[in-house]
């Protein structure tokens, strides 16, 4: 996982509440065997509508989603996070998020920045007035800078630390790699191994 320090980009205002993970990515898109390529399923029902905010030309290349309250509720599918990342989002700003979605995001390196709903409203208005407005998200300082205004967001210390260090679950475990190796050197030699392959001699 890449380290997250600061990120600057344009934003998409998504004026909808209770966007569950089925709306983020419907089940029919879950058949893929990779963690990539899910961008085509992102908000797929809404994207059929040419007026949907993601379809507007001035929103192309945006990397920050400003979401409504209770974003990412519902099914635990990790694909919702992958779809947002595959599309190019690095940060989701909102006032309230589904628990599993927020935890899945932290593990995958997608920053969830929690601010008050008033601030969400102000960010919506600012980016609607000026689609080219650049937002800068500073994880260390926990701030979002938009057109000279600085607002503070919330994130738990542990997730902040993991994102700053670029540690996913595997990365965290590998910090104990010396202990894993030491354990391996202590394992009895008769413990079974799958390799080399042994085949029953009879039948």
């Amino acid at each position: 996982m890449d380290k997250f320090t600061t990120h600057t980009g344009t934003a998409v205002p998504l004026r909808r509440s209770n966007v569950d993970t089925d709306q983020i990515i419907p089940a029919v898109y879950l058949k893929r065997v990779t963690k990539s390529g899910f961008e085509d399923g992102l908000f797929s029902a809404w994207r059929q509508d040419p007026d949907f905010v993601l379809n507007q030309p001035e929103r192309q290349g945006a990397t920050i989603l400003v979401a409504g309250p209770d974003f990412g509720t519902g099914s635990s599918r990790e694909h919702a996070v992958w779809a947002l990342q595959n599309y190019g989002f690095k940060v989701i700003i909102g006032s309230r998020f589904g628990d599993i979605f927020r935890s899945n995001s932290g593990k995958a390196g997608l920053l969830i920045a929690v601010v008050d709903q008033d601030e969400v409203e102000q960010l919506w208005q600012a980016t609607e007035a000026d689609p080219a407005l650049q937002l800068t998200v500073d994880l260390k300082e926990r701030t979002i800078t938009a057109g000279g205004r600085v607002i503070t967001f919330q994130i738990d210390d542990y997730t902040q630390w993991r994102l700053l260090e670029g540690l996913d679950d595997i990365g965290l475990t590998l910090r104990h790699e010396d202990k894993i190796s030491a354990y391996e050197s202590r394992r009895p030699s008769w413990k079974p191994a799958t390799l080399p392959i042994k085949v029953a001699s009879d039948s």
Partner: peptide, 11 residues
């Protein structure tokens, strides 16, 4: 995700 974790770390 845990499958990936075990593949990578055996833990």
């Amino acid at each position: 995700s845990e499958v990936e974790h075990v593949l990578a770390t055996q833990t």
